[in-house]
Measured scan of single mutants.
Amino acid sequence: CHSECLGNCSQPDDPTKCVACRNFYLDGRCVETCPPPYYHFQDWRCVNFSFCQDLHHKCKNSRRQGCHQYVIHNNKCIPECPSGYTMNSSNLLCTPCLGPCPKVCHLLEGEKTIDSVTSAQELRGCTVINGSLIINIRGGNNLAAELEANLGLIEEISGYLKIRRSYALVSLSFFRKLRLIRGETLEIGNYSFYALDNQNLRQLWDWSKHNLTITQGKLFFHYNPKLCLSEIHKMEEVSGTKGRQERNDIALKTNGDQASCENELLKFSYIRTSFDKILLRWEPYWPPDFRDLLGFMLFYKEAPYQNVTEFDGQDACGSNSWTVVDIDPPLRSNDPKSQNHPGWLMRGLKPWTQYAIFVKTLVTFSDERRTYGAKSDIIYVQTDATNPSVPLDPISVSNSSSQIILKWKPPSDPNGNITHYLVFWERQAEDSELFELDYCLKGLKLPSRTWSPPFESEDSQKHNQSEYEDSAGECCSCPKTDSQILKELEESSFRKTFEDYLHNVVFVPRKT
C-alpha cells in the first residue's frame, strides 16, 4: 500500500485506493498535508475557505447554543480562536489581540433580562453583547459592586439597553466600559436606550469621564423622579442622539420631579488639616426662599486615587461607600458681607490618608415646582503625618564578641513616609551569675543571650482551647457569634421535631 494509506488498500502504491488515510483526505486521495488554498479540518480532512465560511455563517444565523462559528488559524479551520487571539470578521482569520481579548457573548432569543446578581454573573467577562440587555433589578445585597464585577467589562451592545423598574439602582456607572450601543435591534418605538419607572436612579454616568455613542435609535425617559433633566440632556449631547427624540420621548413632568437638581456650584473657602482632623468651610448658599434650606450634607471617604465619582458603590438597598454628615444651616444675616460661612470639623480620621470630599445642599421643593440647590466639586484632601507606631517583631542576635545583629519589621501604621529608623542602645553591667558559677561542674549549661522565638506554653494553649472559665478566673470563653447562636437554635429545633416524629412513629394507638 501507499505510504499515506492506513489499515489496508485495494490497489498497491495508489493513494486513492486506501481504506483510511494516515494524515489527511483531499478529493478522494490521501495526502501528507493540505496544500494551499485548503485548510486542515478536524485533523483528517482538507477543506477550502468557502466550506469553513459556510459553517461560520450557519452557526451565526441559527443562534443555536453550542454550535461553533468556525475560524481560520495556522492553516486550520477550527471552532474558535485560541487564547490571546480574536477573529477578523472580513476573512475569519485569528489575529493577536492588542491588550485583553474581546469576548463576544451571543444571547438566546436576542435579549437577556438581568433581574438578579445570579443572572448578571452569566455575563461575567463579556466585552461584546450580541443582542439586547434588559435591566430589571428590584433589590439585593452589595448590588453596585456585584454588577460592576460582572457587567463592568461590557464595551458594546449590538441591540438596545433597557432599564425598567430597577428600584435598587442609583447610577449606571457599573457599566464602566460601555462605549457603544449599535441599535441594530430596537425596542418598540425605535428606541435604543429605554429608561422607565426607576424610582431611585439619580445618575446615568459621570459624563466628564465617560463617552457613549448610540449609532441608531432614540432615547426614552419616563417616570424617573430623581433623575434630573440636565442629566438626560447631557446624554443626548454626548451620545449623538440630540435631535432624534420626539416631543413625548422625554417626559418633562415625570423626570426629576422629586430630585434636588443642583444648578449652582458650592466653593470651599477654608481648608485646614491635622493628622486626624480636617476643618472645612464653604461659601454660604440661600435659595430664593431661605426657609427652603434644610441644611447641608457632607460626604467623605478614603480615596487612594483621584478618580472618585459621587455615586460609586451606591445602591438604593443601603450600600453606600460614603460617610454622610448632616449639618444645620448657619444663622442668616441681613448683611451679605457678614454672612457666616458654614463648615464642619471632621474628626477621627487616619493620618497621612487622602480623602475625597464634597458637600451639597438639602432643600425642600418650592411652590413653583422649581428645584434649587448647590453642590461642590469633589475635592481631595490629605491629612498630615504623625509619629508612626512601633516597629514590629524586633530580633537581636550576637554573632561574635563585638557585634549584635538587630532586625525588625516595619510598623503596622507608618502614618507617613518613613525615611529612617533611630536605634538606641545602652551598655549593661555583666551578670554576677557568670562569676559565681563553678565551671568545672559536669552538665553545666552556660547562660545564653542568643534570641529564641517566643512560644506559647501548654497552660496558655489549654486556656485558649477551654470553653469555660478556669477556677483562677484568668480566662473566659469568647462570646458566641450570631451565626453560632442561630445554628444552635436550628439544631435544637431539629432535635425537638425529630423526637416528636419518633414518638408518633414508635407509639401507635392500640386498636379498641
Score class of each variant (00 low, 15 high):
K253R: 05
N141T: 07
L172I: 15
S401E: 11
K360R: 10
L169I: 02
L219P: 06
Y194R: 10
W207E: 02
A195K: 00
W344L: 07
I137G: 12
F174T: 03
T361Q: 07
K407T: 03
L196S: 10
N320H: 07
S400G: 08
L201F: 07
C105K: 02
L186W: 05
N224P: 01
T309P: 04
N224Q: 07
Y191S: 14
L406V: 08
G183L: 01
E237K: 15
P329W: 09
K218R: 08
F299G: 06
K267Y: 15
K301S: 07
A385T: 12
I395H: 12
D312G: 10
Q354H: 04
A168V: 11
T254C: 14
V170G: 15
L266E: 01
L172T: 12
I188C: 06
N307Q: 02
W352A: 06
D384V: 14
S274Y: 14
K103S: 10
N399W: 15
A356Y: 00
R124I: 13
P336R: 11
F311T: 14
Q339H: 08
L392Y: 06
K242P: 10
S274V: 04
I181V: 06
L349G: 01
I379R: 10
G313N: 04
R247F: 13
T383M: 02
S132R: 01
N142T: 07
S230Y: 05
T241N: 10
T323Q: 12
L265R: 14
S208R: 07
N211W: 09
S401A: 14
L349A: 13
K209P: 08
E146G: 12
L219M: 07
L180G: 07
D312T: 12
R370A: 05
L107D: 05
S239V: 12
S173M: 12
N334H: 13
Y194F: 14
I181F: 01
L107N: 11
I404L: 03
L294D: 07
S319T: 06
S333N: 13
A195Y: 00
R244I: 05
L147I: 05
L201Y: 00
N190E: 11
K409E: 15
P388R: 01
D312C: 00
H222W: 05
Q382L: 09
K409P: 03
R179W: 14
L108R: 12
S158Y: 10
L196F: 03
N141H: 05
I378V: 14
S389Y: 09
E302T: 03
A374S: 09
A195I: 15
L151P: 00
E237N: 05
E262T: 09
Q258I: 02
G139K: 04
I181T: 01
T241F: 12
N248V: 04
K301Y: 02
L331V: 09
E155H: 08
G189P: 03
N224T: 03
E231H: 05
C261D: 02
I137S: 02
G152M: 04
N255Q: 04
I405F: 13
R138E: 12
E184M: 09
G348Y: 02
I181K: 00
S274T: 12
L298Y: 01
L293F: 09
P284C: 00
P304G: 03
R179F: 12
S401L: 09
I379Q: 03
P288Q: 04
N136Q: 01
I154H: 00
Q354K: 02
T213D: 12
L133C: 03
L349W: 00
Q216K: 00
D257M: 09
I134H: 03
L219W: 09
V390L: 06
P394E: 02
P336H: 05
E231F: 13
F193D: 01
D206F: 03
V238K: 07
H341F: 06
K267G: 07
I188S: 07
E302L: 08
E246W: 03
L252D: 09
V390M: 10
L123N: 01
F268Q: 00
E231Y: 01
S208F: 14
H210V: 06
K242I: 05
M235A: 07
Y380Q: 02
Y305V: 12
F299L: 05
E184S: 12
N340H: 12
L169R: 00
W352N: 03
N248W: 11
Q121C: 07
G295S: 13
G131S: 03
F311W: 15
S260V: 12
Y285T: 04
S269Q: 05
V128Q: 01
T353H: 14
P410F: 06
R272V: 02
E156W: 06
N200P: 02
L204T: 13
V117L: 09
I327N: 01
L212I: 13
F221W: 02
L161N: 00
N334V: 03
L153V: 10
G152S: 03
N198D: 01
G140P: 14
V238R: 15
S400F: 03
G256K: 02
L186H: 14
V128I: 08
D377G: 14
T323I: 01
L265K: 11
A149R: 13
F174I: 12
I278G: 00
N307W: 13
D206G: 06
L161G: 00
G131P: 00
I378M: 01
G139N: 07
D257A: 03
A251N: 13
I114V: 06
L331S: 11
P388Y: 02
C317Q: 04
E283R: 12
D393S: 12
C228E: 01
D393W: 09
Y167F: 08
K253M: 08
A144F: 15
G295D: 12
